[in-house]
Simulated scan of single mutants.
Amino acid sequence: MWVEDWASRAACKGETPDALFVRGAEQNKAKAVCAGCPVRTECLAEALDNQIEWGVWGGMTERERRALLRRRPGSSWRSILETARTKVEVSV
């Protein structure tokens, strides 16, 4: 099920924003916060659909997100990720 108010449930909600907008090796620490987040998919879809350029969102760096956007420009990432999540939930 897709969570509309995902930000209130995010694993990073208690983190300082500066911890998620870092460069280099520090990004791995930020990505670790995302690893067990219950709304990681919603967060990633938000960043991709709005082409957010900075920070770690949904466990992906800006470079990783740019690569996805280049592969599927103009896509609705919410739709793609929501469909993928549904397929995984059904198969489990």
Rank of each mutant, 00 (worst) to 15 (best):
Ile80Pro: 02
Leu69Thr: 00
Ala45Phe: 05
Ala10Glu: 08
Glu42Lys: 01
Val92Asn: 11
Arg72Leu: 12
Cys12Thr: 08
Glu46Leu: 00
Glu82Trp: 13
Ala11Cys: 05
Thr61Asp: 05
Cys34Met: 01
Ala35Glu: 06
Pro38Lys: 13
Asn28Pro: 09
Trp54Ser: 11
Ser79Gly: 07
Ser79Thr: 14
Arg40Val: 02
Glu42Asp: 03
Thr16Val: 13
Ser79Glu: 13
Ser91Tyr: 13
Gly59Leu: 04
Glu89Trp: 14
Ile52Met: 05
Lys87Tyr: 14
Trp57Leu: 04
Glu15His: 09
Ser79Phe: 11
Ser76Asp: 13
Thr16Pro: 13
Glu4Pro: 06
Asn50Ala: 05
Trp77Ser: 03
Ser8Thr: 12
Ala11Thr: 05
Glu15Val: 07
Ser8Trp: 12
Glu42Trp: 04
Arg23His: 13
Gln27Lys: 10
Thr86Ala: 15
Phe21Trp: 09
Ser79Cys: 12
Ser75Lys: 12
Arg40Gly: 00
Gly36Cys: 05
Cys12Ala: 09
Pro17Ser: 08
Leu68Trp: 00
Val33Asn: 00
Gly14Asp: 14
Ile52Phe: 09
Gln27Ser: 00
Ser91Asp: 14
Ala45Met: 04
Gly74Met: 09
Glu4Trp: 04
Asn28Ile: 03
Gln51Pro: 03
Val92His: 14
Ala10Gly: 08
Met60Trp: 04
Asn50Phe: 07
Cys12Asp: 06
Val3Ala: 09
Arg23Ser: 12
Ile80Met: 08
Ser91Ile: 14
Asp5Ala: 08
Gly74Asp: 09
Cys34Pro: 04
Arg70Ala: 11
Ser91Ala: 15
Gln27Tyr: 01
Arg71Cys: 02
Val3Gly: 07
Asp5Arg: 12
Ala30Cys: 01
Leu48Cys: 00
Cys12Arg: 10
Leu48Lys: 01
Trp54Arg: 12
Phe21Val: 00
Leu68Met: 04
Asp5Glu: 06
Glu15Trp: 04
Val56Arg: 11
Arg40Asn: 00
Val90Met: 15
Cys37Asn: 03
Ala25Trp: 12
Met60Ile: 03
Arg40Phe: 06
Asn50Ser: 08
Lys87Leu: 15
Ala30Trp: 01
Val39Phe: 04
Arg66Trp: 02
Leu81Tyr: 09
Cys12Phe: 08
Gly55Asp: 00
Thr61Met: 13
Arg71Glu: 02
Thr86Trp: 15
Pro73Ala: 07
Ala10Val: 06
Arg71Pro: 02
Val88His: 14
Arg65His: 02
Asp5Ser: 08
Ala7Asn: 05
Trp77Phe: 07
Val3Phe: 10
Glu89Lys: 14
Ile80Val: 09
Ala30Met: 06
Ala35Leu: 10
Gly36Ala: 03
Gly59Asp: 01
Val22Ile: 07
Arg9Lys: 09
Thr83Arg: 15
Lys31Arg: 11
Ser76His: 10
Gly59Lys: 02
Gly36Ser: 11
Cys34His: 05
Gly55His: 00
Pro17Trp: 11
Thr61Cys: 03
